[in-house]
Design a protein around this nucleic acid. Structure first.
Lengths: 164, 164
DNA sequence: TTGGAAAGTCAACAAGGCTGACGTAAATTT
DNA sequence: AAATTTACGTCAGCCTTGTTGACTTTCCAA
């Protein structure tokens, strides 16, 4: 366990350590999405619907263009998802009062039920992982993830963090 | 910062903390894939090709069915990707000597060049994140990710870890 | 020698990305 | 008042990457 000339232990920056981190991200993300995917399969929805539901729940009354910025997809792609959710009565779209061009989005009762089901499942896995790893590991986990984001995404992330 | 009756501080297990972890995973994964995606766009390849290249590089001589287990896709889906990589001379497929039904996969020189380009980019981001967060954060990062994997995926992950 | 595993192929399909073009209503600028 | 810009929706078409099902070839092992 030699230190560098600079005095810092940089063993965690070897290519081997970085590769492990990369593979950990790959395999963990599979677990991260597995439970919601299971719930959604068979219903007419997919991961894209889950994401829309999550962020509408997270920021009730958000506009379409705000959602576009968060999700990082085209409006055509989002619209396809949003349309089915509105048709199926999971999401309500309200014309803006101050700016009538905007549409403000809310989950309906029915939407909240599905959101709860999905997030319960995802939280259960996250809770188990957090519990297994312990509080200080969780802090490190969040630090590394935050540092991995594109600056633009980090802004979105922090905006949500503060808002909540 | 009150402790629980059990004596452990479980503040990190609140729904709010879990939600932040979920959103951190979402935004960070975007960053994680962004650089390779940029490199691959315009070439005829996508994320699926990157994954195949990564794991063939990681385990030279691996069989198709082993790769299937790691990637968790159908053989038809993998085959489409693998075929183009072989046609383009990035991957070499060798009939097994002990079991001639098996195909053993290797990166060619050309494949190694692309692998290097992709993994350099991905490692650079991971390195920056690790450096920003520090060694103990990295340890926590890996612990939480590992705990988040499905048991089957954790096996694959550890098999790769040991092998390397 | 026969059953089954490994690998590959063809066909068809779906989700969910993308671009481009166009339309409408509302807000803003000129 | 007119022109422009913004926010949103939609149609059409394309691509990647996933899926299932059916079928063949090869070859190991009971």
């Amino acid at each position: 366990m030699a230190d560098t000339p600079g005095g810092e232990n940089l063993l965690f920056l070897t290519d081997e350590q970085l590769r492990k981190g990369i593979e950990a991200m790959f395999f963990a993300y599979r677990g991260f999405t597995a439970d919601p995917d299971r719930i959604l399969e068979g219903m007419d929805y997919g991961r894209a619907h889950h994401r829309a539901i999550h962020f509408v729940h997270r920021s009730p009354g958000t506009t379409v263009s705000n959602l576009l910025a968060i999700l990082g997809v085209t409006k055509q792609s989002l619209n396809r998802v949003l349309r089915t959710l509105i048709e199926d009565g999971l999401v309500r779209s309200e014309k803006g009062r101050v700016d009538a061009r905007e549409r403000h989005l809310y989950l309906t009762e029915k939407g909240l039920v599905l959101e709860r089901e999905l997030s319960d499942a995802q939280r259960a896995r996250m809770r188990a992982a957090y519990r297994a790893a312990g509080p200080s590991a969780v802090q490190g986990f969040r630090q590394v993830l935050e540092a991995m984001m594109d600056p633009e995404m980090r802004k979105q992330y922090n905006r949500l963090k503060e808002g909540g």
